[in-house]
């Protein structure tokens, strides 16, 4: 444990290799599922049984796995993208407006509303699932993607307003005052001052909101009936229930359903990491 004795200071240190080794070991185990998914997706069942651990040589890759998986997963991915993007955008927009309301002014009823919002943070979502189901039934929203979008918008609302309020309150007042003198409406102030100033927190909340929509499977399982509406969550559950398991195809399907997130991640890695780190600094 020698390496621990080195304080962080600029310049390379010789005896840090042990730390690196330990970190790599932990990360290797952590990323094992990812590795298994990628390497099994290249194999058929026979190949997989003969050699479950190591990647197959590229010459023996079973490309049909991907073609087949694509046919299965593509509609699910499309549905999931619609739901996740729409829910995220809606949620951010409305909570931005809500946060602006609370952060800028103290109007009559503000306090009551704020207290009402905060109580909900304590309320476990799980207690609601039953009446929510009945409500959606009464609104004729069962078996539709709208239901998922609306629930996604409503679900993250409280947390986002709570986080955004702190950020908006810290924007220097002079900025708003100057805008007001120029005759800018509240809406203009929101779009021209608040949004640019809250970029990083918006990105963080957006990512979290997107992930929670993307990963949800309990509500879709209860809400969706028709196969053409399945989101990734339900689709993968049904794929896992097949009687004949082609592990290669299944893993290829898993890989393809992670692909949109992987691409997104590659392009916004820095934002992803920084946003997630900073977002909680003030929260």
């Amino acid at each position: 444990m020698n390496s621990f004795d080195t304080p962080p200071s600029p310049g390379p240190k010789k005896n840090e290799w042990l730390s690196h080794l330990v970190i790599w070991a932990i990360l290797a185990v952590e990323l094992l599922p990812f590795y298994m998914m990628v390497q099994i997706s290249q194999k058929d069942n026979l190949l997989f049984l003969e050699n479950p651990w190591l990647p197959a040589s590229p010459s023996s890759w079973v490309w049909e796995n991907y073609a087949h998986a694509f046919r299965i997963v593509f509609p699910y991915v499309a549905n999931s993208i619609v739901v996740a993007v729409a829910a995220t955008v809606g949620c951010l927009l409305f909570s931005l407006m809500g946060a602006y309301f609370f952060a800028r002014y103290k109007l009559p009823f503000s306090n009551i509303l704020w207290a009402g919002f905060l109580t909900l943070m304590l309320m476990p979502a799980i207690t609601n699932i039953v009446p929510l189901f009945v409500l959606l039934k009464q609104l004729h929203l069962l078996n539709s993607l709208y239901a998922l979008i609306i629930l996604g918008m409503a679900g993250g609302q409280i947390f986002c307003i709570y986080m955004l309020r702190n950020f908006i309150e810290e924007i220097p007042k002079d900025l708003f005052e100057a805008a007001e003198i120029d005759g800018a409406s509240h809406w203009l102030q929101l779009t021209h001052i608040v949004i640019p100033m809250c970029g990083s927190i918006l990105a963080t909340l957006g990512i979290l909101q997107f992930l929670s929509s993307w990963n949800d499977f309990l509500m879709p399982l209860v809400i969706l009936r028709d196969p053409e509406l399945y989101t990734i969550g339900v689709g993968l559950i049904y794929l896992d229930g097949e009687y004949v398991k082609h592990w290669g195809e299944i893993m290829a399907a898993f890989l393809l359903s992670s692909l949109p997130m992987i691409v997104l991640f590659l392009f916004s890695m820095k934002l992803f990491v920084r946003g997630l780190s900073q977002g909680f600094l003030k929260g």
């Binding site: 952590e30 599922p33 990812f34 990963n215 559950i237």
Partner: peptide
């Protein structure tokens, strides 16, 4: 690991 859907 966050970018792999939790179901996967």
């Amino acid at each position: 690991p966050m970018i792999v859907p939790s179901l996967v």
